[in-house]
Design a protein around this nucleic acid. Structure first.
Lengths: 211, 211
DNA sequence: GTCTATATGCTGATAGAC
DNA sequence: GTCTATCAGCATATAGAC
């Protein structure tokens, strides 16, 4: 869970040269920006190229088609978030309680998805619009990520740290939805990321009602 | 807050005829479906027309341009949800507590947004992609709706029904985000709407932690 | 009110120079 | 590796018949 770019070198080629790799990364970042702002159908290779500082045909040196470029953006976004949360969980003290692990995952998810917010909003906004074939690799990542969260909740429930009458699956989906949507409205000039993390953890742990 | 279509008749014309009105409504519903599935840039008038059972040029009889059609979809979605929640709140017993009003608003929002889910997903998915000019009327609706929720939370806080250390604005945004995102994943074949409403209310009221 | 026919403009992808 | 030049396809919007 340490790699974050999934070096998709051309078939059979050795590792890309540094310069080549940086250009590919610039194109990918540019595509994430354009995809999040213009949507799947509105993502023009011309705009991606301008944003990346190359001409449009140069994109075809790194990606075989527009759809493959978009598929890579969706995959990389999902993959990096899962990798980061996974790494954070793996680094927690062994005596961390299941609920402590859930709260740590909430923090890790929020911090990372807002750090790479172009990829996050690109995924969130286009999840229902990108054709299924193009989403396939990203979907596999998201399934794995869903399983990770399901495990977190089931361990908390088995440890008696969750309310007994909770529908664990529905609640998990609601919480992940609240976090994903934060990428749409969070404004660092109005609230610090620390405040957002704290508010989310409080909501998850105790809701809004006074005890 | 009873009207739900905002009869946008042509400049200076009297109310549209029944048949005309139904066709307009079919085109609007079709546009909501296409917009949610294909996105702003991918919404082709040809697809809208096919879905509505008319030919593409007929759309221009009811809407002056593609952008005006899309603007109307975004506006109507926001307007109807706000109208419904407003109506439900107005119908509550006078002795309903502020927290009871929040939970009623949660239920009303979820039920209505999932009832008109094409409009909901059209708004949610394209909120960050539709040009500002096209979003203007919808934005005004959403601002009014935001104020309504802010009032609900402030009344609950003033009545001492909220935890004292709560960041009311952040929490409100997280809750509305969780609900909006439910339109993306809720599957009526897996969980009833009643279950979803109950799970959301529990999360809002008490979070997931055991008391 | 709704149709057929069409003008105009823009996009993805390729060929081939350097 | 990255560029210039170019082709073929498709979408909005309008004109005008019925």
């Amino acid at each position: 869970m340490a790699d974050q770019t999934r070096g998709r070198s051309r078939a059979g080629a050795s590792a890309p040269l540094p310069k080549s790799h940086r250009t590919r990364e610039r194109i990918l970042d540019a595509a994430a920006r354009v995809l999040s702002r213009k949507g799947y159908a509105g993502t023009r290779l011309q705009d991606v190229a301008t944003e990346a500082g190359v001409q449009a045909p140069a994109i075809y040196y790194y990606f075989s088609s527009r759809d493959e470029l978009i598929a890579e953006v969706m995959y990389v976004g999902a993959h990096r978030v899962r990798g980061h949360v996974n790494d954070v969980l793996a680094g927690l003290p062994l005596d961390t309680t299941p609920m402590g692990r859930i709260l740590a995952a909430v923090e890790a998810h929020l911090r990372y998805e807002l750090l790479i917010s172009d990829y996050t909003t690109a995924s969130v906004r286009n999840a229902g619009q990108v054709p299924r074939e193009v989403r396939e690799r990203a979907t596999a990542e998201e399934t794995a990520y869903t399983h990770m969260w399901r495990d977190l909740f089931e361990q908390a429930r088995d440890a008696g740290e969750l309310r007994g009458d909770l529908d664990v699956n529905l609640t998990r989906l609601l919480i992940i939805g609240a976090m994903n949507w934060a990428a749409e409205w969070w404004n660092p000039e109005q609230r610090t990321l620390d405040d957002l993390v704290a508010a989310t953890q409080k909501l998850v742990l105790n809701g809004v009602g006074s005890p």
